[in-house]
């Protein structure tokens, strides 16, 4: 931690110096969801259930994309996928 600042120098309302998006919480992950595009029917249930907003729809590529910078590997998407298109794979040590 850098030198602590005084109350006149810091943003009000407890706003951190950098936004939460700068902390890549994906590093907390133990299991990584891996999507098999050939099994995926684009129903987007994974998008609906993802509690972190890490699953998005890439319209140009016609596929579901997982943001590994923020996915914490909770496995809800894999559990909810009706086609078992998502596999939870142990992260490399």
């Amino acid at each position: 931690m850098s030198e602590l600042k005084g109350w006149k120098e810091i943003p009000i309302a407890g706003i951190p110096f950098k936004p939460g998006t700068e902390y890549k919480t994906g590093s907390w992950r133990t299991f990584k969801p891996v999507l098999d595009d050939s099994k995926c029917v684009r129903c987007l249930l994974c998008f609906v259930y993802c509690p972190e907003g890490c699953i998005t729809w890439n319209e140009t590529e016609n596929r579901v994309v997982i943001d590994y910078d923020f996915c914490k590997g909770c496995g809800i998407c894999a559990a909810e996928c009706p086609r078992q298109a998502i596999e939870m794979v142990l992260e490399a040590a």
Binding site: W7, I10, A13, G14
Partner: peptide
């Protein structure tokens, strides 16, 4: 480390 400063504001 910072709660007190925010209360001071």
């Amino acid at each position: 480390d910072y709660y007190y400063e925010h209360k001071m504001q």
